[in-house]
């Protein structure tokens, strides 16, 4: 499974699944090592996602055709 393709939620879910599989201890060593490697990658990806996060805050404006438009909003109006 490609760690890059997954969003945070999927990554976390897969990570928990991997930890569960490892903790059950039924997988043979080679498979365990592969799981561990995948888990480590996901861990790094999730940490990176948590670290870099730019929040966009906008105010909705209804355009002339009734379509939604956004203007920046800083909470002070």
């Amino acid at each position: 499974m490609a760690a890059k393709k997954m969003n945070f939620e999927q990554s976390m879910a897969r990570l928990e699944e991997i930890v569960g599989l490892l903790e059950r201890g039924e997988a043979p060593l080679e498979e365990s090592l592969a799981l561990f490697e995948e888990g480590t990658k996901l861990m790094r990806a999730c940490s990176a996602l948590l670290d870099k996060a730019e929040q966009k805050v906008a105010l909705l404006k209804v355009g002339p055709e009734g379509q939604p438009e956004e203007v920046p909003f800083d909470g002070e109006e």
Partner: peptide, 27 residues
């Protein structure tokens, strides 16, 4: 809460380490 999540990530990391430690030591 991202701080809380970072905490659970750490927790998962420790579980991951322990998870691999067992099959390794068995081997």
């Amino acid at each position: 809460d991202r701080v809380e999540l970072a905490g659970s990530l750490d927790h998962l990391a420790r579980r991951l380490e322990r998870g691999i430690a067992h099959p390794m030591s068995a081997a």
